[in-house]
């Protein structure tokens, strides 16, 4: 096991100049993800891709040893979906902060879910814009005062869990950076889920969010019961709408839906990724010349 963890560690780990604040929840998520992957024999740094956008959370691939696409702010989902679509042999994780995923990338979030791509969507939800120094994010609590929202946020808080369930997501979970053991298990299940899997990971921002602290998250969340039936959509929605106390665990899951790439005609007869295919120029030539 120990060896496998090292697989995902950069060999210059000691010299890495990490951009996160001491005590930041991102460290914990980084370690949890490494641990989760090391326990999944089917995954290697070479057969997975970590796609991220921009933000503090989105820097995670740089502290990791794997294929990486660190793209633009808000745009990791379009990239991740099509990496998977053109090469289904790759394991694809799309990971960023909540500002990136639900704000700048909000439209992609909605429509990615509708496609049900076989990717894992990990969202570091610290309820604030960290990298740009503490402005409100879509999940910032009402009343939070920031240098921009000087009178306190009065916009409705975005509800990623309810939105995902409503859009037809096939795996919706909430986890906490403060609980490595359970979060690791949730992430493993999310990665093994065939289809789109959202894990909204509650994470304190020790510098810019003085409200939603480690303590606050502990007091305002609870784990779903062991006997909870995550396949009941209406029940899941009810839980999602309870924002007084945040449920942790797999809130909703549906294993019957086909993944995006499984529905594509390009894989009907040929299972090979696109890059391995030879283009038949002769056939194309006669096709063009038949357009008489």
């Amino acid at each position: 096991m120990g060896n496998r963890i090292e697989l995902f560690a950069r060999n210059d780990e000691k010299e890495m100049d990490i951009a996160w604040c001491p005590g930041c929840g991102n460290f914990s998520i980084l370690n949890i993800l490494k641990a989760a992957l090391s326990e999944m024999e089917e995954i290697t740094p070479e057969n997975m891709v970590l796609v991220s956008g921009i933000g503090q959370a989105a820097k995670i691939p740089h502290y990791f040893r794997t294929n990486t696409f660190n793209g633009l702010h808000g745009r990791s989902l379009p990239v991740a979906q099509m990496i998977k679509a053109v090469n289904p042999e790759l394991h694809v994780i799309s990971e960023s902060g909540e500002g990136d995923m639900y704000g700048e990338g909000g439209n992609h979030f909605i429509h990615a879910i509708r496609r049900n791509p076989d990717i894992t969507n990990l969202v570091h939800d610290n309820m604030i814009y960290g990298l740009t120094k503490g402005q409100a994010s879509p999940t910032t609590q009402k009343g939070t005062v920031t240098p921009v929202q000087i009178n306190g946020v009065f916009l409705e808080q975005f509800n990623p869990i309810a939105t995902a369930i409503t859009m037809g997501a096939t795996f919706v979970a909430r986890a906490s950076s403060g609980d490595p053991a359970q979060t690791k298990e949730i992430i493993k299940k999310a990665i093994r889920h065939k289809g789109y899997a959202l894990v909204d990971i509650l994470q304190p921002c020790v510098t810019f969010n003085k409200i939603n602290t480690y303590k606050w998250f502990k007091e305002n969340s609870y784990y779903l019961d062991e006997n909870y039936n995550s396949e009941n959509k209406m029940k899941a929605l009810e839980i999602a709408f309870n924002t007084e106390k945040l449920a942790l665990g797999i809130i909703y899951k549906n294993e019957d839906k086909k993944a995006f790439h499984e529905q594509l005609t390009i894989y009907k007869e040929n299972k090979e990724p696109l890059f391995k295919r030879k283009h038949n120029i002769k056939e194309l030539e006669s096709f063009i010349n038949s357009k008489i």
Partner: peptide, 20 residues
Amino acid sequence: AEDEIAAINMAIGGWYAGAR
């Protein structure tokens, strides 16, 4: 795509993973 921003990011993702 859901919008043009997605479209071009999808295309770049495609090329990154070996498509044209």
